[in-house]
Design a protein around this nucleic acid. Structure first.
Length: 890
RNA sequence: AGGGACUUAGCUCAGUUGGUAGAGCGCCACCCUUACAAGGUGGAUGUCGUCGGUUCGAAUCCGGCAGUCCCUACCA
């Protein structure tokens, strides 16, 4: 074994080992209880970033943990075609080669996208493998796979027949660059510094005019009314009259509606039902004309008269100019407002009237709300429940058609003769209305989230009632970022309830987003996104995973830092070296047959600590508190096992009889064995690599072991001993005192020192006497005196109080060090203790405290203040003697 | 505009029923003591955003204020 763990040399072969043993395979039928997670399918837009690595680290930890706990686990991989996103990426890619999709035509273009999909999917899957994902690859699914597509069509048809999907001419969010409608969720609102224009609208029957306030003067071309508040005294006399539209002269009515805020602008609003969501409602309510002035590219169309062909911004400039010329512009002022932008292209969203398909949401939302309210599905962190419910309560119908090519084609056909619309899973024969057989399928595809909403059951074979579906649905937990709670999570819940009549998962764990070390969101456009492979190659997959698991806290965003990964790489190396020590120094073949009665105190102590760690790690994982569990293990390995247990054992083994040594070595081997298993879900590669080196584990796999729990290791309790635990704590405290004196007095670790221990009771004296050699070696002591009466001159002194035992540690400093240093040290210690003591005494002197506080707290404070008094007295005396340079009883 | 948070050591963050402030990294000092220098030992560092309230006692519970962030939302 090398003295450094070399992840790049072992990770690939370890992953291969797992695959060869089919360690990730889930069984459709099994007597074991099921545990299933569907991997949120990454988009085939490009490679995975650190956010995915975080997401998958959590899932893989759960999967391996549950597997080791005896569950029949399924972690199902897949990828998402990601309609708009992928189409945009591929179009950009083609653009570089001087191609565009119109040139290629639908079929050729789709071939290109499929080509892209194959490449990126390969890359994504290899990234997941590099990260160590225990995914059942035999079940990998793509959202456009035939089975999934059939299911998507079936769901569409079914919802259509139930009247939950309808087609209609509606005002939708239109993205000019995409030439497609997008859903409300895909619109991002940004604050924009615009202008508010006040424009004169002359009355037809008088010389008066109304002044309209608008941020979008160009849309006046599509105005079909002007609206005021019915109770607005300023304008009541105009209601019902007509005004002449500036520049184009069309006559429109003045109407009144309560929705108008008289305080805003002039209190007069132009109504453009075909280009504004508020105006659309007014248009429907008052039966106004809908005049569409934009084409699919968001240029002005034939209804714009002389402005035809202009872009929206050009048109705005021209119209403002023309209004000024005609003296119709009263005023323009700066105005900050929220404007919707396309989340994919960044273009300003134009509300546009167009024929689209919608899902009626209110009926589907109700049960989805109920299952979260009732706790059938739990959200972690719970803070999201409120957000989730609020969204469902205010849900609007979902526009699911997209004017794209990449995606699930909408299963609707239009009769070319009589325009009859036919929706079915297959193309129809004769038209039931007119008897002709001339059909054209709808050109549009479905919103990518439509198929994602079905993912938990389509991946398991639905609509067929497969064994997999029976076994693994509902899935156990969904792990995903909180950014897609509405896009995905909510819709899966609706569709699962609608089509499988059960929730898609029992628990949702929402984690934060990964940010860079400056705290900004990682994104490709900012060029700050990191390929996890780069990190893995530098530090290993385990270090990256542990970094996430040790640092993820209840849904908070995660600030990535390479230094921290490096820190956990060091931890993994520490583990590696501990294992190396055990494997090279321990000569027993297995840990079987540990003989309880002859165990040393350290052995008992480490076994007890192990038991406690097993208990607490299990609790942490049960509660999805990954960082708690990770830190527990980190400190157990580094501090308890390496710093103390191995160091104690090294010395202990020098002294004891061969059979006792063997017994003790079994304990060390056992603890290492358990550590490896405990850490496996967090850092699978290094643990498996070490496991493979355990001689008695030949032919086995770490991933297939039982996870150490207090149930599995219940016999550990037989080894517990409070006296042993006390002995270990006492030794630790004495050694720490000696090292502290050494460190603070700058006595070199190479310099051996004399130490005198004054003990105040026989029991402690006996214990310390038994560990004389231990103390001397670990404390680098040349002469050690242990006695009830210890005299010293020019000595550094420290007082330990532990339970009923008390020890004074004295280190003669003559010739070693400047006495002034020690006086400073003592003074500092005394001051600190006095400060604490003062606070405790103040508290204990309050009658209210003694009366109201928990008796345990009072007792604790009493004891603690007694300890402090003893310490202060010892130190104060020592300081005086040092000053007077005389021998004293320490 | 409504909602949800967050504010703790130089940095990133823990702190689960209120009871003497913690970790990792960084920093300082001394050490290549044969598992590990990707290491060892010791050390320093915080009016827990601010003001008030409840309490014997508040980082922790309640309220006001300030700052930061996120989500939802058609304000012309």
């Amino acid at each position: 074994m090398s003295d450094r763990y070399q992840p790049q040399e072992v990770e690939a072969s370890i992953y291969r080992l797992w695959e060869e043993h089919q360690a990730f395979k889930a069984l459709d039928v099994s007597t074991k209880p099921p545990f299933s997670i569907i991997l949120p399918p990454p988009n085939v837009t490009g490679f995975l970033h650190l956010g995915h690595a975080l997401n998958m680290s959590i899932q893989d930890c759960l999967i391996r943990w549950k597997k080791m706990n005896g569950f029949n686990v399924l972690w199902l991989p897949g990828t998402d075609h990601a309609g708009i996103a992928t189409q945009v990426v591929v179009e950009k890619h083609l653009q570089k080669m001087g191609l565009n999709r119109e040139q290629l035509g639908r079929e050729k273009f789709l071939e290109k996208v499929w080509e892209w999909k194959r490449e990126t999917e390969d890359r994504i899957y290899s990234q997941l493998k590099r990260l160590g994902g225990a995914l059942d690859w035999s079940r990998a699914t793509f959202t456009l796979d035939e089975g999934v597509s059939r299911a998507v069509t079936k769901v569409f048809v079914s919802l259509y027949r139930k009247g939950l999907i309808y087609r209609g001419l509606r005002l939708v969010n239109w993205s000019g660059p995409l030439q497609s409608a997008i859903s409300d969720l895909e619109v991002e609102f940004k604050e924009v510094k615009g202008r508010l224009y006040l424009i004169k609208y002359p009355l037809t029957d008088s010389n008066e005019h109304l002044i309209v306030a608008t941020t979008r003067p160009e849309t006046l071309l599509g105005d079909t009314a002007v609206c005021v508040h019915p109770k607005d005294d300023r304008y009541q006399r105009f209601i019902g009259k007509k005004v002449r539209l500036p520049l184009i002269g069309r006559e429109i009515s003045v109407i009144a509606d309560e929705s108008i805020d008289p305080q805003f602008g002039t209190g007069v609003v132009k109504v453009t039902p075909a280009h504004d969501f508020n105006d659309y409602k007014l248009g429907r309510k008052y039966n106004l004309d809908f005049i569409n002035i934009l084409d699919k590219m968001c240029y002005l169309n034939e209804n714009a008269g002389i402005y035809r062909g202009l872009s929206v911004t050009e048109a705005r400039r021209r119209i403002v100019h023309d209004l000024k010329e005609s003296d119709l512009l009263v005023k323009e002022e700066p105005h900050i407002h929220q404007v919707g932008h396309c989340s994919r292209t960044g273009a300003v969203i134009e509300p546009l009237l167009s024929e689209q398909w919608f899902v009626k949401m209110s009926g589907l939302a109700q049960p989805a709300r109920a299952v979260v309210e009732s706790g059938t599905i739990t959200l972690e962190p719970e803070a999201w429940i409120k957000t989730y419910l609020h969204w469902l309560n205010n849900i609007e119908d979902w526009c699911i058609s997209r004017q794209l090519w990449w995606g699930h084609r909408i299963p609707a056909w239009y009769c070319q003769v009589c325009s009859h619309v036919y929706v079915d899973e297959r193309q129809p024969g004769q038209c039931e209305k007119c008897g002709n057989n001339s059909w054209k399928q709808d050109e549009d595809v479905l919103d990518t989230w439509f198929s994602s909403a079905l993912w938990p059951f389509t991946t398991l074979g639905w609509p067929a009632q497969t064994e997999a579906l029976k076994t693994f649905y509902p899935t156990s937990v969904l792990v995903t970022g909180h950014d897609i709670l509405f896009f995905w999570v909510a819709r899966m819940i609706m569709m699962g309830l609608e089509f499988v009549k059960d929730v898609p998962f029992r628990k949702v764990y929402l984690h934060g987003l990964v940010r860079d070390d400056q705290g900004t969101k990682m994104s490709k456009s900012l060029d700050n996104s990191i390929d996890p492979i780069d990190v893995i190659e530098k530090y290993g997959a385990d270090a990256l995973r542990f970094n996430f698991l040790a640092h993820i806290h209840s849904g908070k965003d995660f600030q990535f830092s390479e230094e921290r990964v490096q820190g956990y790489r060091n931890f993994i190396n520490k583990l590696w070296n501990a294992a190396r020590f055990v494997l090279t120094r321990v000569s027993v073949a297995s840990f079987e047959g540990i003989h309880g009665p002859s165990l040393a105190a350290f052995d008992r102590w480490i076994l007890q600590r192990l038991w406690e760690v097993e208990r607490d790690v299990e609790q942490g994982l049960e509660q999805c508190r990954f960082s708690d569990a990770a830190h527990l293990l980190y400190h157990f390995v580094w501090n308890d096992f390496c710093d103390w247990y191995i160091e104690f054992s090294k010395v202990n083994w020098l002294e004891i009889a061969p059979d006792e040594k063997e017994n003790s070595q079994k304990v060390m081997l056992f603890v290492l064995d358990r550590i490896i298993a405990l850490l496996h879900p967090f850092i699978p590669f290094v643990t498996e690599e070490i496991f493979q080196k355990l001689p008695y584990r030949e032919g086995q796999l770490c991933i297939l072991q039982n996870y150490p729990t207090t149930r599995l290791d219940k016999e550990l309790k037989n080894f517990f001993s409070s006296e042993s635990a006390f002995e270990v704590e006492l030794l630790k405290a004495v050694l720490h005192s000696i090292r502290q004196i050494r460190g603070e007095n700058r006595i070199s670790p190479a310099q051996e020192i004399g130490v005198k221990l004054r003990v105040f009771d026989e029991k402690t004296q006996k214990i310390l006497g038994n560990y004389r050699k231990m103390l001397m070696l670990l404390g680098r002591i040349s002469s050690l005196e242990i006695s009830p009466e210890v005299r010293a001159k020019k000595a550094a002194v420290s007082r330990i109080v532990l339970g009923n035992s008390s020890v004074t540690v004295a280190v003669p400093l003559e010739g070693l060090v400047n006495i002034e240093e020690e006086i400073k040290r003592l003074t500092k210690a005394i001051e600190k203790a006095e400060k604490t003591l003062k606070e405790l005494e103040r508290r204990l002197s309050q009658e209210a405290f003694l009366k109201n506080a928990n008796p345990e707290v009072v007792e604790h404070d009493r004891q603690q203040s007694q300890v402090l008094r003893v310490q202060i007295q010892t130190w104060t005396e020592a300081r005086e003697r040092l000053l007077r340079n005389e021998e004293f009883l320490v």
